[in-house]
Design a protein around this nucleic acid. Sequence first.
DNA 1: GATGAATGAGGCTTCATTCAT
DNA 2: TATGAATGAAGCCTCATTCAT
Lengths: 187, 187, 187, 187
Amino acid sequence: MKKKIIEQSILLFEKKGFSQTSIQDIVDALKVTKGTFYYYFSSKEELLMDIHLQYIDDLLERQTKILEAASLSCREKLAGIVHLLISDIKSEGPNARVFFREIRHLNGENVQVIKEKRAEFRYRIQHLVEKGMEEGEFKPNLRADLITFGILGVTNWSYQWYKPDGKVTDEELSGIFTDMILNGIAV
Amino acid sequence: MKKKIIEQSILLFEKKGFSQTSIQDIVDALKVTKGTFYYYFSSKEELLMDIHLQYIDDLLERQTKILEAASLSCREKLAGIVHLLISDIKSEGPNARVFFREIRHLNGENVQVIKEKRAEFRYRIQHLVEKGMEEGEFKPNLRADLITFGILGVTNWSYQWYKPDGKVTDEELSGIFTDMILNGIAV
Amino acid sequence: MKKKIIEQSILLFEKKGFSQTSIQDIVDALKVTKGTFYYYFSSKEELLMDIHLQYIDDLLERQTKILEAASLSCREKLAGIVHLLISDIKSEGPNARVFFREIRHLNGENVQVIKEKRAEFRYRIQHLVEKGMEEGEFKPNLRADLITFGILGVTNWSYQWYKPDGKVTDEELSGIFTDMILNGIAV
Amino acid sequence: MKKKIIEQSILLFEKKGFSQTSIQDIVDALKVTKGTFYYYFSSKEELLMDIHLQYIDDLLERQTKILEAASLSCREKLAGIVHLLISDIKSEGPNARVFFREIRHLNGENVQVIKEKRAEFRYRIQHLVEKGMEEGEFKPNLRADLITFGILGVTNWSYQWYKPDGKVTDEELSGIFTDMILNGIAV
DNA sequence: GATGAATGAGGCTTCATTCAT
DNA sequence: TATGAATGAAGCCTCATTCAT
């Protein structure tokens, strides 16, 4: 039941937004009563926090796997992370959109926890960029911190528009983005 | 008065979010009463629509000026648009953040109007990319539409993290982003 | 309207108790809506606090008048205070009962304020007892603090049972209590 | 288990009040589940009734012992009852406070039963006063009924303020109260 | 132009109680 | 004996909006 509540909520939060989705909407969709909701969650925010944690923890775990792959170059690892994020929008679209849009509805301590995990994800990319610079794969003298924000912009902005049911596959899109990030668009 | 209401609302919407800001909050901050608000706006949404229109219309106008500058190359025009967006976060930070975050609180027709204007802004960039490809400034065979989303990701994501009171100036940041978009980070 | 809400609430709180009285009960009785209630009070507790303050402040004021009457002996002043409390149950019965019963529903700071005012009322009696001892009106060596609690017990307990519509007038009852307090019941 | 539920409930009811204590609070404190509670009690009110009955029955029984002591004078019996009530606050403080405060949460028939037992306790004191008057131990012409309410006020009010962990012992306090009731405070 | 009292719908949450196991 | 998932009614409170002045 708890799992069903989470899944249904993600769909509703994506469609109508967190504030605009009432507990009543959620339990109606599941044909249970509000009491049931509060048996599993102590508040609406706790549910949102659950969704956030589940999403970011999964992302961090998969990022770790990519970064630990000994056989990959920095470029390949970067490509892997870009694909991780893009393909996630495909497989976990609603979840991803809720994650990016609704963080503002977490309060105090909760928002802190999530922001730290998001920062962790970002720092790891930054360190990858730095390593690539040291090892001569990337240009020297890059501002690794700002470049990282640029990379995340390219990927994360996709949740705003990328509908994976269209003609563009996630491999294609991450390929195009990786190429742009690595080689630019100028001749 | 109307202008004061808009300005104050932008600040409050940025800080607390649209749903979390009540009309009461707005009029309290201005030391007037709810009647005053409804004298100038027929609804809370109309206010939000005003804010959106003002923002996107201004952006489109300034984009037009850049694109019509006959003396500029495609690369330079692209650089100009990147700088336009980044510098706007500096000068119009709260406004920009409200624009990007709260569109979901516009209903039906309103959201359509704004989305079309946003699309117009995007299409113009896409055409610029295509023109650059034709004229040999950009690589041939680029997917101009997807590249455009990538470029907008780099710039628009900045409103999530860029605090222009820090050590990075908007010229610096747009320079770094333009360079990344044009030339990539790989050696 | 605010005054009407307070008056109606006192009656309902007395009859059903604070917890058992809903805002809905109050506004229904006044044929207004919940919004109206919250226009005048920010919470149910604020209403209760208003009631408490109004009651205790009035009591303190009237106690002051008695204590400042230069022509009265300590015995007479004590008799006056006993009569003040008993007659108050007659004239302000519901109010008095709410005051004594529902203080537990005030939180933190509020309960502190009321408790201090109640203590003030008590200390003044204690000082009166002490003065009576010094001036030879009362026995020496009394524990003025404990005696004061005893006196307040006699009077305040009355709100539990005294129905002034019966055959016992408030003058009669306060006379009997004053006599018991001053002279005891033993021969 | 039933006994443990009662004991724990008394502590919680004293601390937070009957309405503010949920069944969940009670079972959580005992590390059992709600089912357990409803195995032993058919409702929350039944639990409260149990507590009340246990308290008043015990009090009546001990009062009986005092009144039946052939060797005691009326004064001594009265002193005994005063001490019974004061010492009870010491040994059964939480229980006593719940008994005095929460009776209003009993419904219809239940409240009637308890009120009758409380009245019984009171009538016996009243009869004692009357007997003392007849036998010349107390003043003639006392209003025994009202005097009894006065006596109960002195003792019962104590649960509002008397903390037996302080410097005043229950013997001391009941001595002072008995003296005040019998002999008054005036010289 | 502006006030502010009043509305009414809806939101989040609590909780005593039931019941199948 | 005991569990714990589920119910459903009710409670407190918020808020955009209206309207007479």
